[in-house]
Each structure stands twice: as C-alpha cells, then as structure tokens.
C-alpha cells in the first residue's frame, strides 16, 4: 500500500513537471553539439560542421501549413539573402510529422527559399533543442554557441499577415553576432503553431 502511495506521488510530481517544464533545452551561451539532417531539395545530408567557417548559423523551425510561419516566408528569404554575404547561413527545419519531406520541398520551391531546408523526421532535433513552435529561431555564433532564441520578428505584436511581418528581433541579434558582440536581447517571446511531433 505504502509503495502504491509513493508511486502515485512520484507519478503526480512527474506529470506536473512535464506540464510546466516546457522551456528550451539549449540555453543561451551553450554550444550545440551538431546535427545531420537531409536537405529536402538536394537530398544531401546537411551537418552543422559544414558551416564551421560561418560567423552565424540561423536555425529556423518552419511549417508548410502554419499561418504564423507562412507570414514570415518573405522575411526569411530576404534576410538570408541579405546576411549570407556577411557570413551568416540560414537553415530552415521542418519537424512536423504531419508535413512529409515532399511537401516541405514543394513549399520551399514555391516560396523561393534560397536557403537550405531540412526535414527533421521523428522530430528528434526539435526535441533536442526543445523547439516548440513555428516559426522559432535558434541563432548560433561562429563557435556554435546559442546567442539568440525566439521570434523572427513581431514578438510584441504577432501576425499571420505577410505584409505586417518583420524580422526586427532576428536582425538585432544577427547584427551583434556577425560583429562578434553580445546580443542585447537574447530571448524574445515566440508565437506560432505547436510543432506536431
């Protein structure tokens, strides 16, 4: 009986922790070990080590069917083009089990993404980072350390309208990381659709 009671208490505590402990697993300042995920367009494997010479790596969790993510398609395409010559690389990651690689490929082509888009089958990478929504940004510096986590933009006024979407929060962080400075605002509120695991 006593054992049953203890088990019930332990299980209850675990459940409460699961319910409340949702913050990202990778913390600001911590290095990302690495990843290897397939590019949905070329099929080749993309690894963090491929970008060892980059000043910044922008990982963005995206979706094909989420209006909050889709509102930022243009912003992502523009920013990647603008910052790639300055040593920053953008990688779109789709971890939704409901969105197969084929659909992710079509979506990337239709939206003219000049950056790599990978499929995180089984959502293992999203789990490792503790990513929750789309769109959600993890910005790494030249050493692979997390310098910014949060929204692309509009963190104070989320939107599903492309004309209202901006990349202000990511830009402030990127400017600092590319210049080798500390990021003033290292975390912002995100808004979006839950990643379907």
């Amino acid at each position: 009986m006593k054992r049953v009671v203890i088990t019930v208490i332990v299980v209850s505590v675990l459940l409460v922790q699961l319910g409340l402990g949702q913050e990202a697993k990778l913390k600001i300042g911590e290095p990302l070990e690495g990843f290897s995920l397939p590019d949905v367009r070329s099929g080749r494997t993309v690894s963090l080590s491929d970008y060892a010479d980059s000043k910044a790596v922008v990982l963005i969790f995206i979706a094909t069917g989420c209006p909050y993510s889709n509102a930022f398609n243009g912003v992502m395409a523009d920013l990647s083009e603008r910052y790639e010559p300055r040593g920053a690389v953008f990688i779109g990651i789709n971890s939704n089990k409901t969105e197969p690689a084929k659909e992710v490929k079509r979506h990337a082509e239709e939206n003219g993404f000049g950056f790599v888009v990978v499929k995180d089958g089984g959502s293992a990478f999203a789990n490792e980072l503790g990513a929750q929504v789309t769109p959600e940004v993890f910005l790494l510096d030249k050493d692979g350390k997390l310098r910014y986590h949060g929204a692309l933009g509009n963190s104070r006024q989320p939107t599903t309208k492309p004309e209202a979407a901006n990349g202000d929060e990511l830009v402030q962080a990127l400017e600092s990381v590319v210049a080798g400075r500390d990021v003033a605002m290292a975390q912002t509120k995100m808004f979006g659709c839950t990643i379907k695991r």
Partner: peptide
C-alpha cells in the same frame, strides 16, 4: 497591445504556441 505583457499575465514561461 503588447504580446509579451499578455503572455506574462498568464504565464511568463509560455512560448505562445497554439493550442495551449
């Protein structure tokens, strides 16, 4: 007016994911 304040009013640790 400010999403961050709105989220913080209910739970500062909520990311803003839907549904929640």
């Amino acid at each position: 007016e400010d999403f961050e304040k709105f989220v913080n009013a209910i739970d500062p640790e909520w990311s803003g994911a839907l549904p929640t």
